[in-house]
């Protein structure tokens, strides 16, 4: 029932003048990055991988202890690489979003 106080207050408290539009735009940008733009990302080794290869200790990497279900940012069974990577990215983004929102909500509630 909170949030229904004085006139105009609910909108302000729920995110202000433009309502949740900014939030949906932000989510759209994140999904676009993970789902589409990720297909155009550089496939070169990242800084750490490059250094480990150059200095000859890349072999120190063990097999992953947990073989993740979306390992390599690919969905098993989806043969099209870009589609598979995009799907994995969208799933990961939504999982991170859900966990992040849940955690923030729990912390906010416990602070009250």
């Amino acid at each position: 029932m909170s949030g229904h106080g004085t006139m105009g207050a609910p909108a302000a408290r729920l995110g202000g003048r433009r309502g949740p539009a900014w939030w949906l735009v932000g989510l759209g940008v994140a999904l676009l990055c993970a789902g589409v733009l990720s297909g155009f990302a550089s496939a070169s080794p990242d800084g750490l991988e490059w250094v480990t290869e150059r200095l000859g200790f890349s072999a120190a990497a063990a097999e992953p202890v947990v073989a993740g279900p979306l390992a390599g940012y690919q969905v098993a069974g989806v043969t099209d690489g870009a589609l598979s990577g995009g799907l994995a990215g969208v799933v990961g983004t939504l999982v991170v979003l859900a966990v992040g929102l849940l955690l923030a909500r729990l912390l906010r509630r416990s602070a009250a």
């Binding site: 994140a30 990055c33 990302a41 070169s44 990961g92 991170v96 992040g100 929102l101 912390l107």
Partner: peptide, 20 residues
């Protein structure tokens, strides 16, 4: 106000980390 943003920031960081 900020906790919805916190979830969104985590999601955006995940997505942006895919963009090498």
């Amino acid at each position: 106000r900020t906790s919805p943003l916190a979830g969104l920031v985590a999601a955006f960081v995940f997505a942006a980390q895919m963009l090498n």
